[in-house]
Write a protein that binds this DNA or RNA. Sequence first.
DNA 1: ATGGGTACAATATGATCAAATTTTGCACTG
DNA 2: CAGTGCAAAATTTGATCATATTGTACCCAT
Lengths: 227, 227
Amino acid sequence: MDLIKNKASLSLADGGKQPVHEQVYQTLRSQILFGELVPGQPVTIQGLTDSLGVGMTPVREAIRRLISDGALVFQGNRRVSVPLLNSGDIQQMIFARISIESELSRRAAANLQADDIDHLEGIDKNLDRMIADGDVGGYLRLNQAFHETLYSYANAPILNDLAERLWLRFGPSLRVVCGRFGTQSLPDRHKDIITALRNGNAEKVAKATAQDIEQGMELISEAISSA
Amino acid sequence: MDLIKNKASLSLADGGKQPVHEQVYQTLRSQILFGELVPGQPVTIQGLTDSLGVGMTPVREAIRRLISDGALVFQGNRRVSVPLLNSGDIQQMIFARISIESELSRRAAANLQADDIDHLEGIDKNLDRMIADGDVGGYLRLNQAFHETLYSYANAPILNDLAERLWLRFGPSLRVVCGRFGTQSLPDRHKDIITALRNGNAEKVAKATAQDIEQGMELISEAISSA
DNA sequence: ATGGGTACAATATGATCAAATTTTGCACTG
DNA sequence: CAGTGCAAAATTTGATCATATTGTACCCAT
């Protein structure tokens, strides 16, 4: 059986003039966040140095960072791979995400202006189109953008950081779920969130966020327990 | 003004046969966790390679990991230092710690046996002695051990991981508080936690944990806003 | 103050060594 | 004679270091 190889054409989308280790980190980070790596897939240092055309030191640094993020796991025998989640992991993540992200949206609700809400609604509109088109990659990106944008208004960098880590953990698994069941089965509570934001009802925003999270994570949970 | 230099005698307490980058990580990690580094203090790669007598690659890996942990911060211009917290950071950490760690102790309560509770009580007894002796380092270590031990029974690695990160963030600041006000002003709710554990009352365990956290963090918060 | 030069620290690479996995080959058995 | 299993070699990957290069800040002269 042949697993997906690290693509040789990772052009390391250079964002201006950032150090190489940062570019490698960002590249891998979005691959994981958007499920371009399969859970369980091994990630090798040499494979990355070859495919990215950079030295090993920056690759090592990026990998250590991602391990600390929970985006990659160290397998004991110096092997690194994309995490495989079990149902206990998912339960913990449901709890943590609801705790942290509800608070983030509660705080954001207090700071959002009308045109900020319009912007969020715009993202959600595009998101609906992705779902209709069955574009899994686009769905994952826009869903993440919706939440990230919302949370950014909370001005809570530490909570944000905790939330980001959790997203990195389930990114690959969410992709697998979408790939198996399609995008049709992906309902969300974004409309509820937007309505509550317009009404200035922070508690309802938090509640809708919690429901959105629970729905999405429960999907992963079911997919895993049936595997 | 001269900040504390990285000690040259960091003997890298070798735990068996771990790779150097892991040893460096663990060494720095406990220095930060137990406040042996001062908030704001710069941390240089070269300084560590010199004082630890190892190459730069493993040092770089350890530092990247600690940055991802939130235990160190990247200052933009290639500088790395120990984080300085503001009151907003503390508020976020109070919320996150109470959410996560209450749940950890709630889960642990269900799994603890009688002799496990004895063990916890033993740690707390030693902790009291440290407070009486004014031994700040000992206090920090045993307080951490008390919580870590309790949480370890929760069998919740992901929640545990989130909690650990938060501890790394406030370690240096807590040390400063203790150094300024002494250990006398450090009350805790450990007795309440142990009593509730013996009664098998998980909710009360969670509540006492939340109070313990709030008390401790509020201390840091006051110290910061008065600075 | 401002601007150039110097010193120092960070970044990145390639070389080297060590460890682990995979492959290969041989012997032994049914 | 074919198939299985073990063992050793070969290959792949990881870990560390030494060195060259680049960027940043500090200092001094103007």
